[in-house]
């Protein structure tokens, strides 16, 4: 299990255990954490699972594939630490991972 902290746009924090193999997006959805829509269910086709990765973690996760990079390019309020959470796979090494959610996914 990896403990992941999700911080809503309003500052509300949720710390949950997520099973390795799941995506960071699924960790939020399965734990009823608001702020991630995930309309396409993780197919990297909708860009409604946008999150900001905590600066301490940006260099420590798998880099983006081309499809994720180009989808994100067209999402709203994108920052240098933006990711599509369905494309971040949870591993034991992600224990303590922190993400913030944007104001809106649309």
């Amino acid at each position: 299990m990896a403990k992941i902290k999700y911080i809503e746009h309003n500052g509300k924090e949720h710390v949950v255990d997520v099973k390795p193999g799941m995506s960071v997006m699924e960790g939020a959805v399965k734990n009823l954490i608001p702020g991630i829509d995930a309309d396409c269910g993780g197919a990297c086709a909708c860009a409604t699972c946008h999150v900001y990765v905590d600066q301490a973690w940006t260099g420590k996760i798998e880099p983006m594939q081309e499809m994720e990079k180009t989808m994100l390019d067209f999402a709203e309020a994108v920052e240098s630490n933006s990711r599509l959470s369905c494309q971040i796979k949870v591993t034991e090494a992600l224990d303590g991972f922190v993400v913030r959610m944007p104001k809106s996914q649309h």
Binding site: M22, E26, V29, K30, L32, G41, A43
Partner: peptide
């Protein structure tokens, strides 16, 4: 959508198909 893709391929367990968990 995953039915004809990752789920058929065996790359996605059935529990991961559910849109929301039962507790929702």
């Amino acid at each position: 959508p995953p039915l004809s893709k990752a789920f058929l391929a065996g790359d996605l367990a059935r529990e991961r198909l559910f849109i929301k968990p039962e507790e929702f």
